[in-house]
């Protein structure tokens, strides 16, 4: 009985996925000859299509947003594997950290590093940068906490539960924007039309800035989790 229910559930879900895929593929346009080449097309009309001044972000999060979803899934898989192998269920014990001068100077500099990370994330559609780069800069803050102040400080400030919350929140933001694309525009991860504004302002370019924020939190929290689970019992001597 239980097995039968499971089989019925699986077949229902698979039928739903197949129907959604069929609907999505039937929306694809006919093949049009791009006799000028794809890169020329993107350079010419990328700004009109997406409203993003930075064409690389336009390609990453609008034209090829599905590939970016796959990349963040790869990062999720890497984080899951490393945490599964390396987490040893022990309290975080680490060094007392570096000397007073380093602690004080990094205490002054860390808010500016965080500000730079958020700047790179939120201006991804205007200047070079974007979710991945800014996310790694945010992960560097957690690495600084672990090395300079000891990993117990990192555990108290941003516990692994908080990081897990950030990571899943970022991934859910990405997927939610994709589903909103299906509901409003008719295709998965289509750029949301009602969010467009004047080109060059901070809140413009449809859903690209929000996808950037989601990817930034996801990548930053994921890499911080990787580093934390690797460092847990390692740097015991202090320098």
């Amino acid at each position: 009985m239980n097995k039968l229910m499971k089989k019925i559930m699986i077949s229902v879900v698979l039928t739903g996925v197949a129907f959604a895929l069929y609907q999505n593929f039937s929306l694809m346009p006919e093949y049009q000859g791009l006799n000028e080449g794809l890169s020329n097309y993107i350079i010419k009309s990328g700004l009109n299509d997406t409203g993003s001044l930075n064409l690389i972000t336009a390609v990453l999060y609008d034209y090829r947003a599905f590939d970016s979803l796959g990349e963040s899934t790869v990062i999720f898989g890497a984080v899951s594997g490393i945490v599964l192998i390396l987490s040893r269920k022990m309290l975080p014990v680490s060094s007392k950290g570096l000397s007073f001068i380093v602690k004080r100077a990094l205490g002054i500099m860390t808010p500016f590093i965080a500000l730079f990370g958020f700047y790179v994330i939120t201006h991804g559609h205007l200047t070079p940068g974007g979710g991945f780069q800014g996310g790694v800069i945010l992960a560097a803050i957690s690495i600084i906490f672990s090395i300079v102040y000891g990993s117990a400080f990192d555990y108290r400030r941003y516990s692994p539960q908080t990081k897990t919350l950030f990571e899943t929140g970022g991934a859910l933001t990405f997927l939610g924007l994709g589903l909103a694309g299906i509901l409003m525009e008719g295709a998965f991860l289509q750029n949301l039309g009602f969010l467009t504004a004047e080109t060059g302002t901070l809140i413009s370019a449809g859903s690209i800035p929000y996808i950037n924020i989601g990817v930034g939190f996801k990548v930053g929290a994921g890499l911080a989790i990787i580093f934390y689970s690797m460092i847990q019992k390692t740097f015991e001597e202090d320098f």
Binding site: N54, P128, Q133, V136, L223
Partner: peptide, 13 residues
């Protein structure tokens, strides 16, 4: 863009 990613990931992380 690629330069920023390479500097942050390759040299830092």
């Amino acid at each position: 863009d690629v330069a920023l990613a390479e500097a942050v990931i390759g040299a830092g992380l």
